[in-house]
Structures are given as structure tokens and as C-alpha cells.
Simulated assay, not measured.
Amino acid sequence: MKKIIFSTLVASSFLFAADYTNSIGMVFKEIPSGSFMMGTPTLSTADCPKDNPFTAPNEYNDCVSSRTRNVNNNETPVHSVTVASFYMSETEVTQGQWYEIMGDNPANFKTGNVNMPIELVSLDDTKIFIKRLNAKEGGDKYRLPTEEEWEYAARAGTTTKWSCGDSESCVSSIAVYNTTSPKPVKSKKPNAFGLYDMSGNVWEWTESCWTSNYNSGKDCEYKVMRGGGWSSNNADCIRSAYRGTNTPSSRTGKDGFRLLRMK
């Protein structure tokens, strides 16, 4: 019952949220403030049975393995995060939007469709784009999201593996993955906040430094990437909590970004 009530509240917030469209036509969705549990929960192993010395099976290790094998350590421990309201671009930055600001198109996958996501851009490249967009609009409102803001927006009030639920059968409706190339943005359904491609299509740079888990120190030689991409060969790699990492100067045809606009 609590889960249903929470989903209803999120849906209500979305219905009354306001869009913001900037000077080059980028649409941003208003993301309401709130709290969520970040990461992937681990099942308790406290009640796993002790080994019986007179039987061949290793009951304890088998029990522990069954409860932990599907959890990536870098997604633990689960912890509560409170996020202030912000605007998030409804799509990944497109090749057309990149060209509008930068005057070029470095993407590897060029199909003639301006709504293809920009890729083959490093985190350093995204910072140049953001600096020029801020200058064009006479402020400093735009930046990359932190991974906390990103996961909150991706979950859109859900506590499930993907924003569409826990069943892998729903993933194809929201994500471009396990394919040979990215697809135009908005090819799949949005989440409850109206955001497209939060799972799959291209990996998305964040502002956050990498941590091997949420209790470890930050390594700023590597940045966190979120969302998975078109080349992710299974749905596990595009879960809301799934984390990737890369060096800020790296450029691949799998990597893009979306923007956050501060209020």
C-alpha cells in the first residue's frame, strides 16, 4: 500500500510540474524535491544456516551467494538522499542542440537526423558546451547533474530495478539497449517525470567523482556515468542504480550527456 501511495504522490507532482524551454529549444522538466533510497539493497545473510558437517552441500555459502550475487558492491550501502527541486533536460543532448552551440558535430553515428543523441564527447567537452550555453543565456544555471540527482530523476518515485518495474519484460518499452547503434531521442516511453532514455541509448556523464562504494573515498581521476547505453548487452546494465565510470578526457561512441538547469 505504501508503494502505491508514494507512486500516486509522484504522479501528482509530475502533473503539476512546469516545463522550461530555453533559447535553443531544449525542453526541461521540473523535478520536484524529495528523498529516496539510493543504491541497491542487499538481502540479510544473518539467518543463513550454518553448515551441516554431515552433508556434502555448503549451506551457508550457498545461502550467502544466492542473496548477494546479483548486487554490485559499488551500489552499496543503500542510503537516504534528499534532493532539492531542479529542472532536467527531457532528453539527452542531441546532435542538433550540440551543433547550435558548438558549430560542429563530432558524433560517430550520423544519420541525418538532428534528434540523434550526441556522443563521442568527453566530460571536458561537455563543460565547454555548458560554458557556452550559459554565456549565450547570460547566467550560470546549466550544469551536469550529480549522480544523486541523476538517480533520483531516473527513478521518478519508483523503488524498482527500472523505472518501469522489476520485470525485465518491461525494459524494451523504455530503453534502447543491446543493439548496434543509438537511436533518436524519444524513441521509447518516458518515465513518470517525463524524462526519456534514462535507461539506455547513450551513457550520461555526471558531475560526481567515482567511489568504489558509497562508504569509500572519492577518486576524481574518474567520473561517474549513468544510464547504460545502446551497447549494454543485458538489462541489468541499465538499471536505475547501475553505475559506470570513465576518465574525464575519454571519448567513445557510447557516451553522451543531459543537462540540469538550476532554479
Results as ranks from 00 to 15, higher is better:
137 E>Y: 09
25 G>K: 12
128 I>A: 06
29 K>S: 14
204 E>K: 14
126 T>G: 04
159 T>R: 13
155 R>D: 00
82 T>N: 10
241 A>N: 00
201 N>C: 07
156 A>M: 05
93 V>L: 05
33 S>P: 03
190 P>V: 08
181 S>M: 14
171 V>D: 03
23 S>M: 07
1 M>S: 14
220 C>H: 09
108 N>W: 14
246 N>A: 15
238 I>F: 07
89 S>M: 02
10 V>P: 01
172 S>A: 12
182 P>G: 03
162 W>I: 09
136 K>R: 15
213 N>D: 14
62 D>V: 10
170 C>W: 04
223 K>N: 09
262 M>I: 13
223 K>R: 13
231 S>Y: 13
90 E>Y: 04
255 D>S: 15
235 A>D: 01
210 W>I: 01
137 E>V: 02
197 D>M: 00
161 K>H: 07
138 G>K: 11
2 K>D: 13
151 E>S: 08
175 A>N: 04
23 S>T: 12
228 G>N: 06
4 I>A: 14
107 A>V: 02
157 G>C: 05
81 V>Q: 07
203 W>I: 06
80 S>L: 15
114 V>M: 15
216 S>G: 10
51 D>L: 08
5 I>H: 08
59 E>D: 11
39 G>V: 02
150 W>Y: 11
210 W>D: 05
61 N>A: 07
100 E>W: 13
193 F>N: 06
209 C>T: 05
245 T>Y: 14
184 P>Y: 09
212 S>M: 14
117 P>R: 00
75 E>H: 07
217 G>F: 11
146 T>K: 06
74 N>I: 10
127 K>Q: 01
48 C>Y: 07
160 T>A: 09
33 S>F: 12
194 G>V: 04
253 G>A: 15
192 A>E: 01
47 D>P: 06
104 D>Q: 11
113 N>Y: 09
110 K>H: 12
91 T>E: 00
65 S>L: 10
247 T>R: 11
174 I>Q: 02
205 W>Y: 10
257 F>H: 06
60 Y>H: 10
31 I>N: 00
128 I>Q: 01
103 G>S: 08
13 S>K: 10
164 C>E: 01
37 M>L: 11
194 G>I: 01
16 F>H: 09
127 K>T: 06
132 R>I: 04
180 T>R: 12
235 A>N: 01
245 T>C: 12
86 F>K: 00
83 V>K: 00
214 Y>G: 07
10 V>N: 08
66 S>I: 06
72 N>E: 13
64 V>L: 07
213 N>R: 11
124 D>A: 12
122 S>H: 03
9 L>R: 08
255 D>V: 14
174 I>W: 04
225 M>Q: 05
253 G>Y: 04
116 M>T: 00
201 N>Y: 11
36 F>L: 06
76 T>P: 04
251 R>N: 08
43 L>K: 08
